[in-house]
Write a protein that binds this DNA or RNA. Sequence first.
DNA 1: AATAGTGCCAACCGCCGGGTT
DNA 2: GAACCCGGCGGTTGGCACTAT
Length: 382
Amino acid sequence: MVRSQCCDKVGLKKGPWTPEEDQKLLAYVEEHGHGSWRALPAKAGLQRCGKSCRLRWTNYLRPDIKRGKFSLQEEQTIIQLHALLGNRWSVIATHLPKRTDNEIKNYWNTHLKKRLDKMGIDPVTHKPKADSFGSGSGHSKGAAHLSHMAQWESARLEAEARLVRESKVIIPNPPPNRIGSTASAQVSDKSSAAPPARPQCLDVLKAWQGVVFSMLSAGISDSLESPTSTLNFSENESAIPLIGVQKNSATTLAFATNNAPCNGGTTAIEFNSGNQFECFEKLNEAAQVKQNLDSSLALHDISPDASNHNAWFDSATNENAPMGIVEGLSEILVCTSQDHNAFFAGENINDSCGGNLEENGNYWNSLLNLVDASPTGTSSVF
DNA sequence: AATAGTGCCAACCGCCGGGTT
DNA sequence: GAACCCGGCGGTTGGCACTAT
């Protein structure tokens, strides 16, 4: 099948965008929405192909884009998600609020890949170059489990990413417009010295790490279970709660009754009639989230044994309980949350957890050493 | 000061999958 | 089911900025 190349038409401009072109595109999209990208250039008075307009919008002009240096937490997220997902930048981007897949891809290729390489870690496999994780006979079973876990966790993350994308529709959070920004003004926002708030999406990593960690510490139990993870709907922690959904086909969602533990003025969604609630400040947000979750519950049955997964919820707004998710994986975890903290703080936790953690935990310790050494950050999120 | 080398990133390219006709 | 449209994705590249020699 021969496809017409949208940018092959004579007279269409390529290359860097001018401030005037940015202005035209921005003004048009803000007033009309992008609609059909193919039809947009003519309507907006641009001598560009629709694809070029779309890329310019999604990668630069879109108002909800954060530019500038990647934070320590973002680096950790990228590395860890890349270990799980590979080069699926769009999926990774859904877990990094306000970052584009293109930006993440560039950052990986120009920074993180090289750093891992220098550390002697294969940036593709995330294994030590000289050694292969789990290559020893004693680890083969664990490696198989890890691989199995990674496969379904990868698929689930991707499914969650779709859900996040859908849910973004209801999160109007437009920062100031970029009107007036120019192609030549593509400089990093170095004024944002203060570290950003901890993205909730990192909790999915904690959940995952908790599983991996417990597997290592428990000698890879046969009764391995899979974690659910959190969905990141917004960077605004106070407005949009962390949501855990039971990965059980019988999961039901309903708007909660008056006994929901939500503050006045908020609306609760009840999960499974099990006294598990999430509170929303706006009714329409709750309704939309419920709708999205209703239509997406099937996503959560992709684990090897969905019926064995326990529901868990994290009190995400409780910043004093950063390990809540991991603790929620009660049947999976062997070590205490303190052990986990120690592990992700790079401490030797063999004493408290037993097992062969030191060897298997080298990679994550290395990652932490990597980011600890980074001048961009001073503390670990874990 | 001039040149070469390197890093970085916006933008392009080609492919793919979903939806529509 | 085939043909086509369209948007999205990941890989790659061109060119600017910066650094080293």
